[in-house]
Design a protein around this nucleic acid. Structure first.
Length: 597
RNA sequence: GGUCCGGUAGCUCAGCUGGAUAGAGCAAUAGCCUUCUAAGCUAUGGGUCAGGGGUUCGAAUCCCUUCCGGAUCACCA
């Protein structure tokens, strides 16, 4: 049981015994003592004064005495300005340290057949262009969430819905037919998703030219858009696709397969993966059937033009279109179908969608529509909404060429890591391949940590030139701390220092050592909290604090040069616990830690 | 206009189930590599926690309000 809770329970006892009053638990606040004060845990006395009817000093001392008499791990206590500070016995901390070190799953809950199942949807790309910075945030969040959920005892299914059909991919297809000259990823030497993306851009350019020409010939912008022959051809292609036209479907399959090869490469570089991928092309008709069935059951309404709507005004939302007047499906239709297929495929207890906050409204609607269709999980679906990634100049705009491409970014990061490592020259004993592997780990560590340490719901600014640093509050700093610890153990072996892996419990601890133990101990709780609040950022910030504290400790204290064997063993045990905690936390963020760097 | 989300140091961000003197990093300045990795450590400067009101022994944190920024309210996805 967490120490805070133990103190709290005894405190409640104390008030009843001392003052004859029953207090509710939320009034009793136990927290960690501020770093600049003596003590480990603090009971806030102010709210208890009305029960004691005495001054803060006196009340604190009475309760403090009761608690230290009833909890065997309290070493001493003092009352400062209405705060009752407890110092715990060193032996308690050291016992705790040994417990942590002997528990390889410390902080992680086991997953069994009986565990609830959680499905997490993330990534969800369109197949007409390559992944960009925004997708990176999505993928990293989704992947990290899946690991956090698993550490909290969920069976996790990672899923992806690929938006592989629709007008957008038809635009790329049409451009390729018109101006592609049979170009393929092989003949062009380009990554498949980038190639297809280029044709999407090409379509857009030609379309704009066409519109401008029409406008110059005297048409209004609206009429020009209606008269555009390129757009008409793209639409026609979509209709042919829906009708199963052989040639169109073949082209579609070919170009999508290029994109998938490209995506696979990016996903691999990012280190994310999926257990089950759904394709919109396979789910949208199910969605349409469900809407029509709902219409039959009077859950939805059909307007005079034939379009189908859901009225959610009673939920504070608007009317929302579910099927177009021509009977074709819209964006949400596909999500309805996908949801049904998923729940048919898996016994899902909890469904999480990792999707940007521009779709907050969409998911509110989806939730109610599914509820109305009779799915008991509809109301409970969880939209993990995250903010946009912006550039210093503002939003990314493909039109202005300010989109930061995922692949470009990753390779630039690796180049920077390589240069920096070269300058520092610490990997001199490594082969080229080994060193290259470490550069990748560091580069990705920097990128991932940067994206994950920010509160997901906030928009974040990404400065391509300055943002990603390798110093300070960064992934590499934490990785570095881990590498240092590993180095200590390598050196210990070289020096033939014999250590049985445990800390002696009869040794005193200095403040830094105690703080490190506290931080390690906390991370166990934080992992659970992160599971409830779904926040990789929580873990990221805690693990940074731990790494920072360790680096300070490392500079202030000797470890292997410590002559007192007992103290040396305590410090080695702390190194072990910190290293293992860092690696577990980073694992939850999807970040690897190197043995050397 | 309705709804939702944000506003904390020059910049990027923590802290938000109310607690002690609001924290990091970057940037700036000054130190520290013949001791376990200097991607590090130490020190200095930097704040009307957007403004105003309220609740409270106590507010960056909760409530109300104003201002600023973003998102959304499509037969787009």
């Amino acid at each position: 049981m967490a120490i805070e809770i133990q103190i709290k329970e005894i405190a409640i006892d104390a008030i009843e015994k001392l003052y004859g009053q029953k207090v509710s638990p939320e009034i009793v606040q136990v927290q960690q003592t501020r770093k600049d004060q003596k003590g480990d845990f603090t009971l806030v006395v102010f709210p208890l004064l009305k029960f004691s009817g005495k001054k803060p000093e006196e009340t604190g001392n009475e309760i403090g005495l009761y608690i230290s008499n009833n909890l065997n791990f309290i070493g001493s206590f003092e009352v400062i300005k209405g705060f009752l500070n407890f110092s715990l016995l060193h032996s308690f901390w050291l016992t705790r340290l040994n417990e942590i070190n002997s528990d390889t799953q410390f902080g992680f809950k086991p997953v069994t057949d009986q565990s609830p199942q959680m499905m997490i949807e993330y990534s969800s790309p369109n197949t007409n262009k390559p992944l960009h910075l925004g997708h990176i945030r999505n993928n990293l969040l989704g992947f990290s969430l899946s690991r956090i959920a698993k550490a909290n005892g969920y069976k996790v299914v990672k899923t992806n819905i690929v938006n592989d059909r629709g007008i957008h991919i038809c635009k790329s297809m049409l451009a390729w037919e018109k101006w592609g000259n049979g170009l393929t990823p092989q003949t062009s030497g380009k990554k498949g998703d980038h190639l297809v993306g280029e044709f999407y851009v090409k379509f857009d350019q030609h379309y704009k030219n066409e519109i401008n020409t029409l406008i110059n010939s005297g048409l209004s912008k609206e009429d020009a858009e209606k008269k555009s022959s390129l757009m008409a051809q793209a639409r026609e292609m979509l209709l042919k696709w829906e009708a199963g036209d052989k040639k169109v479907v073949q082209l579609w399959e070919m170009m999508n397969s290029w994109v998938y090869e490209g995506f696979a490469e990016t996903y691999k570089a990012l280190g994310v993966d999926f257990d089950k991928i759904y394709y919109e092309s396979q789910t949208y008709s199910t969605g349409r059937e469900m809407v029509l069935e709902g219409l039959k059951n009077n859950l939805f309404l059909r307007k005079s033009d034939g379009s189908v709507w859901v009225d959610l005004t009673d939920k504070g939302l608007d009317e929302k279109l579910l099927l177009r007047s021509d009977g074709t499906s819209v964006y949400i239709t596909q999500d309805i179908g996908t949801a049904k297929l998923r729940f048919d495929d898996f016994a899902i207890d909890k469904m999480i969608y990792v999707v940007g906050n521009e779709q907050d409204y969409h998911f509110k609607v989806l939730s109610w529509v599914l509820d109305r269709l009779g799915f008991k999980w509809g109301k409970d679906l969880f939209h993990f909404s995250y903010g946009m990634v912006e550039l210093p100049e503002g939003k990314m705009k493909s039109r202005e060429g300010t989109v930061v491409d995922a692949d470009d970014l990753i390779s630039e990061m690796i180049i920077t890591a390589r240069e920096m490592s070269g300058e520092l020259g610490k990997l001199d004993g490594y082969s080229t391949e080994e060193a290259e592997q470490v550069f990748k780990v560091i580069a990705l560590g920097a990128l991932k940590y940067f994206m994950l340490k920010v509160d997901p719901k906030k928009n974040m600014t990404f400065n391509p030139k300055e943002s990603i640093d390798f110093n300070g509050n960064t992934g590499p700093f934490i990785q570095y701390t881990y590498a240092r610890i590993q180095s200590v153990f390598r050196k210990a072996a070289l020096k033939e220092i014999i250590w049985n892996g445990t800390a002696p419990v009869n040794v005193g601890l200095n403040d830094k050592e105690k703080n490190l133990l506290l931080s390690v101990s906390n991370l166990g709780n934080v992992i659970g909290e992160a599971g409830n609040s779904y926040s990789p950022a929580l873990i990221a910030n805690y693990v940074y604090d731990l790494a920072k504290e360790f680096n300070q400790f490392y500079h202030e204290s000797t470890i292997l040069f410590e002559e007192n064997e007992q103290i040396r063993n305590v410090r080695l045990a702390i190194c072990k616990a910190v290293g293992s905690t860092i690696s577990k936390s980073m694992y939850l963020l999807g970040i690897d830690v190197p043995e050397r760097m």
